[in-house]
Design a binder for these strands. Structure first.
Length: 100
DNA sequence: CGAGTGACTGCCA
DNA sequence: TTGGCAGCCACTC
């Protein structure tokens, strides 16, 4: 499956829909948008994401915050996202579309 | 044009 | 449970 030119845009729109107090993994985003094998591509898209996008709500599948961005955890916590003692986001409780 | 790198994942020891 | 390793894709050197 090829990557459409509006792939990045789809990522942005999806991220913009993440409700406050929720977190999503790159893999989750890739799956929701129909590209389960392009989590890495999603990460690259977010690296170039425009300001104003709540990209801090996106973490790795293990719940790890973005490399080199320690403040991301603070932001999520201030929104009500639960974190584990090891410093990973609790996607089981605060995962978007994966909450149940 | 080949090699290296990264906001990733999943499998195996 | 934790750490190492191999696929993957796009971009830069």
């Amino acid at each position: 499956m090829k990557i459409p030119p509006d792939f990045d845009v789809s990522v942005y729109e999806l991220v913009a829909q993440i409700p406050r107090g929720r977190a999503v993994s790159y893999k989750q985003l890739a799956v929701l948008m129909g590209f389960p094998d392009h989590a890495r591509r999603v990460g690259r898209a977010l690296a170039a994401a425009p300001q104003g996008l709540p990209c801090h709500r996106v973490v790795s599948s293990a719940g790890r915050t973005v490399s080199g961005w320690t403040a991301q955890r603070e932001l999520l916590e201030s929104e009500g996202v639960a974190f584990r003692p090891d410093g990973s986001a609790d996607l089981r409780r605060c995962g978007w579309e994966a909450l149940r």
